[in-house]
Each structure stands twice: as structure tokens, then as C-alpha cells.
Design a binder for these strands. Structure first.
Lengths: 346, 346
DNA sequence: GAGCTGGAATGAAACCTTTCATGTGACGCA
DNA sequence: TGCGTCACATGAAAGGTTTCATTCCAGCTC
């Protein structure tokens, strides 16, 4: 026996036909108990394992959905993934988790893989708003739901209002009396980044300030390492020109900045207040517990999966929906202006 | 046209045979330039996408390896996954990431899925040492490498010496003068947990103490939430019976305990020193930067993938190897006994 | 002009499972 | 005895790709 056993081998060993073996596997009630027993024994003895590829080829589609995220290393996305998996499992589907790492080429590569696999549908947190490749794939009949990104009316999406989130963060900083504000995040091309910045500018304008006077410190990625790098730059600024508060596009950046401040002996929030975004579990456990904008992560994942399943199963009647959740500000020590030392103390 | 276009459709449209289309796809140099052009145009016009299932059925195996981890929510494992993916990509392979969530049934489920998919090989951080199902699958010719768990000589594995890690942690605490020691971790059935505890006991014994006098506080999982729960229990102990130092089986637990201490107003390391394990990025950014036992995570992933690829490609000559890395202690503020208040101060 | 060469294209077979229309035989009932 | 029914079991077909042994043909040599 060269390769692994096939239904044919099982059939021969059990002395029945191919069809009967298949029936034992898929509709056991249609097979006589004695025959069934014999087939099962043959399966056991040969160590037969279904060939999913052949199965799927016959069926024309798989029982898998794809989830493409921007960064598996970010707990924000693994929390979403947990929600997706929970929902998918309860519908009997598997989830194929792909990491685009903020990279358009990788995103497209994974989209191709998912299409070639005849995946049932795709959940994607896209690198950019419009991805022609994704649109093409959808044209060919693949269902897709955008996650963490609001779509047009021609497609389903699940997102959290990032503009509102940015406003919440900036409003809070303004209310706390911080004046020189910086925004840390990037690449600016990322939608989430752009929207959170736009929200902050809105709030700034509403407070009667010039929205362009928010210093934008653009990073190359939304990671702890990028945050540390930017932290170095901030610490190196002369105290008079240094911002009093930074709003970071996500918690990883915020934690990086915070870490660097601590290392350089700058007090948070005394010399620099920090607001993060996402409220991942680690934000609360940070050196200085982080004020952050909370997103309902698992819920995001569940809702997206529900929409996708609906789109797949009721192809004809499906109505595209854009679900938008509201973010929520969680205030912690990192923006406590009471702890800010006298201006002369620096 | 009902379903998506197939090679047959492309062939018809381009006015060539099936075989030629396949050649354009797989060995373009064997096809005349003019014909090739015509086929490519047909592919473009029809939006033809290879059917991976059929491809794989024909080939007998996929171009994918499976990675089963204990907890995708734990940065330790996503860092390993990053290493795996990097190595796999450079060998032209895809990675299917599965989360067993410490659960034997889920682990077995994913193993079955991977076998049915005719995955090229499996990297697995196993829930328990011996998994009969995994052994069965290996019997049928599937390659598998254990990750973060040392195997017997009959199989490849990549791990970090957890006993040494436990010794490093406990030695450090002893050297810092901490006497009442507790170990936080669980389920004790998990190998990593058991070994780290064993290491700590070794060190304790070597220091002339009764190794059974290490209090074992068993948790149900290695998560931040479990850590918080155990933190509550620790805080609730009368100060005289409370441990002076805890060694946590991983950083998530340590962060949870730390968070709860802060919430309850207990000083770390003043009233409780904490050592974590893994040295994930967040450990350094914690409320009190965590002393932790560092593991070379990405390297673990890369090495495991290398072993797997070797096992797959040189099936005949392959020698099973057990690669064991050495952990490294990273000392930070959470175990700084200088900051410990006078005994009478409590 | 016959025979040969090599590049290019062909078409059937194989991979494995599932489905479905068909076949078989036993049994009960009129 | 003959017919209909029912429960099982059968075998061929289909699904899309790749491979490989053939076939075809233009161009070349002798």
C-alpha cells in the first residue's frame, strides 16, 4: 500500500461497494447494522482518513471561512479572532487565520489563497479602504465582510466609529487641561489611523483651537517597537516644545511610548499624558495604567461572522449592512492631570 | 456559466487543449509565446482561478503546514507563530494556525482536520506529553515536530529548558532574600507548568530548604484573568501567612497577579515580589516592570519549522533531533528587594 | 524528396469522494 | 402464485487539475 488508504481500499476490505462506504460515513442510518459494523472495522484497521481535498472538490466549496487581520501580534485582533472562532464553530465552520501584517502584497496573497481554496467567505480587516483585488474576488461570487473598517452600502462591514473614538480621546485630554497635543500613529494611510486623527482634530476644533496645531508624529507601524522609537524622539525634544499629551493610535504604540518615557526618567502623566486605543488587557496592567478607547472586540468578531454567514446562506435575499459600534473611553492614571507636577518643577 | 470558470472553459475559449492551459500555468516555457499569450488572455477574461482542492487532490499533498498552539491570545505563541511563518514563507509554504486553547478535545479536532487536509506536516505545542491520536497520525506518515515541549528520541522537538528556567527564577528570589515562596500556575498537568515548578523546587532544595514548603497555588488557566483571580486569593491571605514572592508560570498570570495587587493597594515588590515567565513585550511595560524568564520565541518557531521541513523533504535520511534552548533571566523592578519596606512597616 | 529532429500541442488517465438512478432480494398481502 | 413494497446495496458519473505518453508539424540534413 503506497499512499494512505482510500474509500476504495476500505470497500474492498469490507467486501462492499464504494457507495456503501460513503453512506456509512455520511448517512449511516441508510446502511444495515451488520454491514456498517464491517465497514467501520475496515476503516479502523486500515487507518482510513477522509481526503478533504477530494471531498471539497466534489462539494464545490469548503467548510472554512478566512479571517485576514492586520497584525496577529496585536491582542486587539486575537480577541476579534476569538469572537469569530466562537461564532464560526457554533455554525460548524472552521476559521483560517491569516496575518497581512499591514502589507498590501501579503493581504492580496492571502486573498488569492483563500479564493483558490474556495473558502466559503472572507472576513478581512483591510490594509486600505479600496482593494481592487478584493472587489474582483467579490465579483466572482465570494462573500466578504469588512472588519474594523466601515464599508460602502454595497458590502457588509462591522466597525467601531473611529472618528468618535478620536473625539473621545481628545475631548478628555482637553478637559484635563492639556494644551500641547501630539498624535502618534501610522502609517497615516491606514484608515483607522486617519479616522482617529480626524476625530481628534474635530474635538480640537470644537474647543476653539487650530486643528492643524496637533503635532502628528507618524510611525511606520502600530507596534510596541514603533512606540518605543517615537518615545525616544519625544524624550529628545526640548521640554518647551515637547507635547504635554499624546494620543496614540493604538495601545501597543502607547505602551511603547510609555516604556521609553519610564526608561528616560520622564514622568507619566506628569510630563507626558498618554491615551491609547483598543483597551487591550495589557493596557490596564501597564506601568502607568493606560487611559484608552475601548472597542468591543469579541463582539466585533461575532457580529462580522454572523453577517458573513447570513450573506452566504441567504444569497438571494441578503441585505448588506454596515454595523457600527460605539467606542467607550476608559480613564486611568496615564491622563491624570492632578498628578502633573508644577510647571516650574521641570 | 454556472460555477467559476475551470481550465476546461479557458481551454475552449483559447482554442487549445486542457493540457496546454495547465502547461501555461505550470511550465510556461514549454508553450509557444503566441499560444501562451492567448491562454493568458482567456484566463484574464474569464476570471479563472485555480481550484486548489483539485490541484491538491491530484498532487496528493498540500503546500501547507499546521501550527497548533495552546493559546493564540498569548503573545508568547504569536511570537512563535511569527517565526514559523517567516521560515515557512521562505520555503514557499503556508501556515494554518490553530488554537487548541489548552483543550485536548480541540487539539485532537484540529489534528484530525490537519490530517484530512493532507497537510504537509504539523507543528504542535501539545496539551499533554503523550497524545495517542498524534502518535497514530504520525504512524500514518505525517511529520510532526513538538514545539515548547521536549520529546523522546523518536520525534523532533524544539523546547526551552523549563526546569532550568524554574531554577533561574527561584535562585534569583532566594538570592534576593525572599523566603516565603509561592508558585502560581496551572493546570499542573501542563508540562511547562510542572517543569517550571520542578525547577523551582530544585533550587529551593539546593538552598537547603524543604522543597515541599513552596506553596503551590494552582490556577485553571495561564491567563491574565486567572492571575487576577489568584491575586485576590493572595491579597486575602493574612499578611503573616502570605508569600513574600510568587513565581508565576507565565507572564500573563504574573500581570494578572500584579494588577490585582495594585488594585488592592499591596506594594510590588515591597509586599509581594513577582517573577514571570516568557518575557513577552508587555512584561517590560507592566505597572511594575516584571522580572521574567526569557525564551527565544521567534527562534523557537524558526528552528521548529526547519526541523519539520527537513523531516518532510529528506524522509529517508532524517534524524530526529531534540533542540533545547537555554532560558535567560531578565531582572526588573518586580523583584527588587531593596524596595521592600521594613518588616515592621506592614 | 525521404527521413529525421525537436518544439509544441494533445487527450486520456488518475487522484478520491459523493451522489443518484438503478438493481436485488426478501417479505407480506391479496 | 404474483405483485407491490421496502430496505439495502451497487456502480457509474462528476468534479478540476496535472501528468505523460502520443501525435503533429515545420524545418533541416543528406
Amino acid at each position: 500500500m503506497a499512499g494512505p488508504a482510500s474509500v476504495k481500499d476500505v470497500a474492498r476490505r469490507a467486501g462492499v461497494s464504494l457507495g456503501t462506504v460513503s453512506n456509512v460515513l455520511n448517512r449511516p442510518e441508510r446502511v444495515g447494522p451488520e454491514t456498517r459494523e464491517r465497514v467501520l472495522r475496515a476503516i479502523e484497521e486500515l487507518g482510513f482518513v477522509r481526503n478533504e481535498a477530494a471531498r471539497q472538490l466534489r462539494a464545490g466549496r469548503s467548510r472554512t471561512i478566512g479571517l485576514v487581520v492586520l497584525d496577529v501580534g496585536n491582542p486587539f485582533f486575537t480577541d476579534i479572532a476569538a469572537g469569530v472562532e466562537e461564532m464560526a464553530a457554533s455554525a460548524g465552520l472552521s476559521v483560517l487565520l491569516c496575518n497581512s501584517a499591514d502589507n498590501q502584497d501579503r493581504e492580496n496573497h492571502y486573498l488569492s489563497v483563500l479564493e483558490e481554496q474556495r473558502t466559503l467567505g472572507i472576513l478581512i480587516s483591510p490594509v486600505t479602504g479600496e482593494n481592487p483585488h478584493l472587489n474582483e474576488i467579490r465579483t466572482r461570487g465570494m462573500s466578504a465582510v469588512l472588519v474594523d473598517h466601515r464599508s460602502s452600502r454595497r458590502q457588509c462591514s462591522v466597525s467601531v466609529d473611529d472618528v468618535v473614538g478620536g473625539e473621545l480621546a481628545a475631548d478628555h485630554l482637553i478637559a484635563q487641561g492639556y494644551d500641547r497635543l501630539a498624535f502618534v500613529g501610522g502609517p497615516i494611510g491606514l484608515n483607522q489611523v486617519a479616522n482617529r486623527l480626524a476625530g481628534a482634530r474635530n474635538a480640537w476644533r470644537a474647543a476653539g483651537q487650530d486643528p492643524d496645531r496637533i503635532t502628528v508624529l507618524e510611525t511606520t507601524a502600530l507596534t510596541v517597537a514603533s512606540g518605543r522609537l517615537m518615545g525616544e524622539r519625544i524624550a529628545a525634544m526640548p521640554a518647551r516644545r515637547r507635547p504635554r499629551a499624546v494620543f496614540c493610535a493604538n495601545d501597543l504604540l502607547a505602551l511603547g511610548v510609555l516604556q521609553e518615557m519610564t526608561r528616560q526618567g520622564l514622568d507619566v502623566p506628569g510630563q507626558l499624558a498618554i491615551v491609547g486605543y483598543d483597551d487591550i488587557d495589557f493596557a490596564a496592567a501597564a506601568a502607568v495604567p493606560l487611559t484608552s478607547v475601548r472597542q468591543p472586540r469579541a463582539q466585533l468578531g461575532r457580529a462580522a461572522t454572523e453577517l458573513l454567514i447570513d450573506e452566504i446562506s441567504s444569497a438571494g435575499t441578503h441585505q448588506h449592512r454596515q454595523v457600527v459600534f460605539e467606542p467607550e473611553l476608559v480613564v486611568r492614571a496615564s491622563t491624570d492631570n492632578a498628578r502633573r507636577p508644577r510647571a516650574s518643577a521641570g
